[in-house]
Design a protein around this nucleic acid. Sequence first.
DNA 1: AATAAAGTACGATAAAAGTCGTATCCAAAC
DNA 2: GTTTGGATACGACTTTTATCGTACTTTATT
Lengths: 263, 263
Amino acid sequence: MKMAGRTIAFRSPCIIGIYRPAGQLSQSGPGTRTGYSVPKPNLTPLQQIAYFAGLPEPVLADLEQAAVKRHFEAGQVIYLEGDPSDRVFILEAGWVKAARMSREGREQALAFMRPGEIFGDIAVFIEQPYPATVTALEPVEVWVIPAKDFLVLINRHPELALAVIRRLGRRVMYFIGLVEDLSLRSVEARLAHTLLRNAELHEGRLVVPRRDWTTFDEMAVRLGTVRDVLSRALKTLEAEGLLRVGKQAIVLLDPDGLARRGD
Amino acid sequence: MKMAGRTIAFRSPCIIGIYRPAGQLSQSGPGTRTGYSVPKPNLTPLQQIAYFAGLPEPVLADLEQAAVKRHFEAGQVIYLEGDPSDRVFILEAGWVKAARMSREGREQALAFMRPGEIFGDIAVFIEQPYPATVTALEPVEVWVIPAKDFLVLINRHPELALAVIRRLGRRVMYFIGLVEDLSLRSVEARLAHTLLRNAELHEGRLVVPRRDWTTFDEMAVRLGTVRDVLSRALKTLEAEGLLRVGKQAIVLLDPDGLARRGD
DNA sequence: AATAAAGTACGATAAAAGTCGTATCCAAAC
DNA sequence: GTTTGGATACGACTTTTATCGTACTTTATT
């Protein structure tokens, strides 16, 4: 491993929806994805968020009162690693990326988050600066809640506390998986593995959709490697007929074969 | 990287006290370590645990009532990855290791835990099997609390909920650091980095103590590599006069130099 | 239509990390 | 005092991953 100066990719990643959002869909493996952005009628915005689904009315009311909506353009930084953590964010629309970068400009994605997810909360809980930089990958709408208001709410509502705990637990699980990937799997294996975990079923085919920010660079950042290596790994798998890389999606032609490669 | 069959090290790790326990000592960097195992008079066992320090009496009383004490010998498995998560554990004495292993028998340590720490809690919160295998590194005393009792207690006591949240937050932070290490740092760099973070001040010298289970194998498991590579890295740093590897401890001769190597 | 810019492909090469065989050291057990 | 098993050392070698230069493709811009 030679390590010096991977390119900093600012605009865009990848394939890869990361945390399994709060409520449903905790089974792993490929499956259809129930829409988070599909608004359901007769619900307040917060109720549409999986994270808060099931919370009693008054809790939601309190939350909504404390929150302010904000907008970010694609590529904008929402906060920087090291910033004082005085706010909690709830994503309403658009994807964001949380990543850590070394002095040399190398980058490792910690999470790609989609509507319905919270971020910035952990730093608030433990009263430390934000541990990662969060960037908007697309035009983004977020609710911003001042840190102390959020803490007060958690103290007041045990249900909210438990929801937070569950979410944190899920995050830890996610990171355990990431650690395992980085430590115990080759790039090719974790590529296969990650593709499978993020596949959706479209017209009878298993597919990993690509957004316009889903470049090879961002995919590489997600996997903890660099574009060149990722590109080669994809070529290898493609050559073996396991998948096909398209412009809008990566089609998984042979899930079983991929699973075998994924470990 | 060739990947096939690292040795499974069952008995022992390393250098490496991992999570910063709950209460004090949140400042990073080298420092003296206030004793967790030094019993203070006039306190119930639970009060001596940093995790619960500061919790009101009734909460502690409830906890103690739900808990049962158990003993494990060095090398014994406390639970296996994949076991149903029906219990939460609180360490009273002895060190344990939480690790994940691949089918081929390769292993990656997720945490080394010492007295005062909780484990098994996350799986309980999100109602999934334990994500890692926990092994006793020494003779160990633990309190065991049935999962549902613990959940009830959290619901009942907001203070406990917040304590749990803070602890989970700290865990996430720890894993973020681990991910960064594995992804962005060379073995040598993360060795230097880890040594510094786990150093203690003894007689004016910065020292990382070694227990009898702190073998090179376990250190390697901690760092996400193998014994040979770790050994070489240590030799390199030793040759440069940055440290000295002793039987009871690794002496950090040149912290600044190490810091430079650590990133 | 020409140009620019971002994204991707690929061969050549280098470096880090992992593997293996063997040798040595050391402490506990007999 | 030997024996034995665990732990460590080390050289030779392989594989994986990273780097670099260059060239090609596609999409957007002018």
